[in-house]
């Protein structure tokens, strides 16, 4: 059963105080990828809605993206002190230790509480939920939630099914203690999981199950594996159900929703999810054509794109919904606050 959280009116919730996002630097368009995969650029576009993606350059890592996104979000919030860093990622720099402490240190945040959270492509909504819980407990006053992934590091670049889908990026928000009555306050939230879907999205090697077997892994098993049909089916069902659930618990109707920002898996999942929620496709924001599926970074990257393109404005009633490996899913509602999109100081 999913876990539902609702910030009561007059209670304490987390409020979004700043946002920032980055893609990796290296642009890979469909024609470059198509040559390698022996397909046409159109084949990729028609199947996924994706035209291009950004990937890490050799020598870079997820933390490099996370630091840049974190710096932008902090700048947007006026560089406040924060009490915790949650890094949502399924592609940490190392399997051990976690990546969040080094990100916090590189951001100059001192000795704050810092931990990784792995909910794959649901990582950002899980991070918001966990961050809200820390703040609502009263033990923390503010925090930084970063979604960062470099799926290009676990994808088989010769697999026409998975290689075109993913890109690398990071997005972050600063959370502070506040009221659900103020814009930016996270309202109803839900998170859930279904471990029976473990094998539908998995990188079999690299963890204790493979290592304890005492045999060298088959190279193919270190790549992300996807059972596309089940991912598509469950992603649409779970995100739509979670979105409808938080909308109802916020006291909104579906018609009240100005913008659905769902995990940017591919265009067809976004369209199908909007349909299941009961929203017209134009209310489901998409930037998947330009950045592909950036896993835990996808929702904050989409929010920043929506802000910069004028689609998302202060006062808009917004639903965020994610689905990812595990399987995991989650959703939250908020009224978009009047905040800046952070930029990085010139190097």
């Amino acid at each position: 059963m999913s876990h539902d959280m609702r910030s009561g009116t007059g209670g304490v919730t987390a409020v979004i105080a700043g946002i920032g996002a980055v893609t990796a630097d290296r642009l890979v368009k469909n024609d470059e990828l198509a040559r390698r995969l022996d397909v046409t650029p159109d084949w990729i576009r028609v199947r996924t809605g994706i035209e291009q993606r950004y990937v890490l350059a050799p020598g870079e890592a997820t933390s490099d993206l996370a630091v840049r996104a974190g710096r932008r979000a902090l700048a947007a919030a006026g560089d406040p002190d924060v009490d915790f860093v949650i890094l949502a990622t399924c592609t940490p720099d190392h399997t051990f230790p976690s990546t969040a402490p080094s990100v916090a240190t590189r951001l100059g945040l001192g000795t704050v509480t810092a931990f990784d959270l792995n909910a794959a492509c649901s990582g950002f909504v899980y991070g918001l939920s966990a961050g809200t819980g820390l703040i609502a407990s009263g033990a923390f006053r503010s925090g930084l939630v970063i979604g960062a992934d470099a799926i290009s590091t676990i994808v088989d670049h010769d697999d026409p099914v998975t290689a075109p889908i993913f890109g690398d990026g990071a997005g972050a928000v600063v959370l502070r203690a506040g009221s659900p009555d103020e814009p930016g306050g996270l309202l109803a939230q839900t998170t859930g999981s279904d471990g029976s879907l473990l094998d539908t999205l998995i990188t079999p090697s690299g963890g204790s199950r493979q290592r304890a077997a005492g045999v060298a892994p088959d190279p193919v098993s270190s790549y992300l594996r996807m059972e596309g049909r089940l991912v598509f089916r469950h992603a649409v069902q779970r995100m739509a159900q979670a979105a409808r659930d938080v909308v109802a618990r916020t006291g909104w109707t579906v018609d009240d929703v100005d913008l659905l920002v769902a995990h940017q898996a591919n265009e067809r999942i976004l369209t199908a999810t909007a349909g299941e929620v009961g929203l017209p496709p134009e209310k489901a924001f998409s930037n998947v054509d330009r950045v592909a599926n950036t896993s835990a970074a996808s929702i904050p990257l989409a929010l920043v794109d929506a802000l910069e393109s004028g689609v998302l404005r202060p006062g808009a009633k917004v639903v965020l919904a994610g689905f990812g490996g595990g399987a995991t899913w989650g959703a939250t509602t908020l009224v978009w606050p009047d905040i800046a999109v952070g930029t990085e100081p010139a190097a």
Binding site: R47, L197, G228, R229, L230, F232, R233, N266, R268, I269, A272
Partner: peptide
């Protein structure tokens, strides 16, 4: 028919005939 279209067809079949397919 690609894999996502197969799922879209199966969802329509489910709606048309009023049942849920197992995974």
């Amino acid at each position: 028919i690609d894999s996502m279209s197969v799922v879209e067809i199966l969802v329509q079949i489910e709606k048309r005939f009023g049942f849920q397919l197992a995974d």
